[in-house]
Amino acid sequence: MRTLIRWTVGLIVVIHGLIHLMGVVEGFGWADVSQLTQPISASMGVAWLVAAVVVVAAGVMLLAGLRWGWAVAGLAAVVSQAVVVTSWTDAKAGTAANVLLALAAVYGFRANGPTSFRARSRRLADETVRSALSVAGPPGSLVTDFDLAHLPLPVADYVRAAGAVGRPHVVGFRADIRGRIRAGADKPWMRWTGEQTNTFGPEPSRVFFMDATMKGLPTDILHAYVGPAATMQVRLASLLTLVDAHGPEIDQAETVTLLNDLCVLAPAVLVDAPIEWTPIDDRHVSATFTNAGHTVSAVLTFNDNHELVDFASDDRLAASPDGRTFTPRTWSTPVTDYRSFDGRRIGAFGRARWHPADAPSFDYLEFHTDDITYLEPGHGT
């Protein structure tokens, strides 16, 4: 639906821009345009040509989905309307197309401009990466079997199978992820793509931007856990704020998610992570993690191939649709589809699952890791 809207608007704008050429033809005297009853001078013909070029460029950028197209769309709306006013009797219908252009510019600014969730997430991600690398120490230190000695055997085998031994220590990652999400067991699924950056060190952080679609409308979701506090914000069409959640409940929930990311997406970090491990049996281990005053625990389940196949915690709270109330509920993330990313092996497909006490368990999120880059000491951002 989103692509259809973008293409429809883009084509309308391109056609609108081409219609401006009628003013060019009339102004330069190349032909008599019967649809135009008002005279157009040669100098105004130049103005109509400039407007045509700018409007067509804006339409092409909208069709291509270029993120900075909003700036050209805004300029095009102003320039086009300026020439429309000079031939108001003949060209006033073009005002409708210019209003559409202006709306596209406003939406584009909110979706991709400097105040957008996307731009904010990238600024936060870059800041946290620079901070993590600045205190990571010198490059060259490799993970050895000795570094795994303090880990329970299932965890050590998992880290080893993930390809950590003989590779540099890891202080974070950047990942491109996609999937689908829904608000409840009986709610429709929403497709999304995401950009995620995590750092692990003295001040762990998690910045996750999701570009989703709700009922055909674009929906921006930003999770930011930087410093001692976390936030979750949702905007419909990049304009209407649906959720602005913060407080101790979100802090605790994001602490569980941070631990989950560490275990699922960055097993090499388990070598250095401040986690208290409690062995349960040869396939299960309990992990306790503290960050910013919040202590959370989870049970990790491994298979015979030394792969993490599930992560379950009772410490993550389920948020209401508006993000204002929270309910204690068991949360798990079964993981499959192990594959290698730059020599490091992780589960590329996972689910997030709620286990209500009074209803059947259900998956509310699915994710596919398309690409992941690990941050190592001494490397750039």
Results as ranks from 00 to 15, higher is better:
Phe109His: 12
Ser116Met: 07
Ala93Asn: 11
Ala111Ile: 01
Asp145Leu: 10
Val135Ser: 13
Ser131Ile: 01
Asp147Thr: 00
Phe109Ala: 15
Thr144Gly: 07
Arg110Val: 00
Arg123Trp: 04
Gly113Thr: 01
Val99Trp: 07
Val129Glu: 06
Pro139Cys: 08
Ala91Gly: 00
Val143Arg: 03
Thr115Asp: 15
Asp126Trp: 01
Glu127Gln: 14
Ala96Met: 07
Asn112Val: 01
Ser134Cys: 02
Ala132Tyr: 07
Ala97Cys: 03
Ala125Ser: 15
Ala102Tyr: 06
Gly113His: 03
Ser134Pro: 04
Ser134Ala: 14
Leu103Gln: 11
Thr95Trp: 07
Leu103Trp: 05
Val135Trp: 07
Gly113Pro: 08
Ser116Ala: 08
Ala119Tyr: 06
Gly94Val: 02
Gly94Pro: 08
Phe117Asp: 15
Ser134Thr: 10
Gly94Tyr: 06
Gly108Trp: 05
Asn98Val: 03
Ser121Ala: 15
Ser116Trp: 08
Ser116Gln: 08
Ser121Lys: 12
Leu124Ala: 11
Gly94Cys: 05
Ala119Met: 07
Gly137Tyr: 06
Ala136Arg: 07
Ala125Arg: 08
Gly140Trp: 10
Ala111Lys: 14
Leu101Tyr: 04
Gly94Arg: 04
Gly113Tyr: 01
Ala136Lys: 02
Thr95Tyr: 10
Ser116Leu: 07
Leu100Thr: 06
Arg120Glu: 15
Phe146Lys: 15
Ser116Ile: 02
Ala125Leu: 07
Tyr107Lys: 11
Ala119Trp: 12
Thr144Trp: 04
Val135Phe: 04
Thr95Asp: 09
Arg123Asp: 15
Phe117Ile: 00
Leu101Asp: 12
Ser131Met: 03
Lys92Arg: 14
Gly94Asn: 02
Ser134Phe: 02
Thr144Ala: 05
Arg123Pro: 02
Gly113Gln: 08
Ala105Leu: 10
Leu148Ser: 00
Thr95Lys: 01
Asn112Pro: 04
Asn98Ser: 15
Gly94Leu: 08
Asn98Ala: 03
Ala102Asp: 12
Arg118Thr: 06
Ala96His: 02
Thr115Cys: 03
Glu127Thr: 09
Thr128Tyr: 03
Asn112Leu: 01
Asp147Pro: 10
Arg110Tyr: 05
Ala102Glu: 08
Ala136Met: 09
Phe146Trp: 05
Arg120Phe: 00
Val99Cys: 05
Val143Gln: 05
Arg118Glu: 13
Tyr107Thr: 00
Ala91Phe: 12
Leu101Cys: 06
Gly113Met: 07
Gly137Arg: 11
Arg122Trp: 10
Asp145Met: 13
Val99Arg: 05
Leu124Arg: 10
Phe109Tyr: 14
Arg120Thr: 13
Arg120Met: 04
Gly140Tyr: 08
Thr128Trp: 02
Asp126Tyr: 01
Leu103Tyr: 07
Asp145Trp: 02
Arg118His: 09
Asp145Val: 00
Phe146Asp: 15
Val143Gly: 04
Thr144Tyr: 05
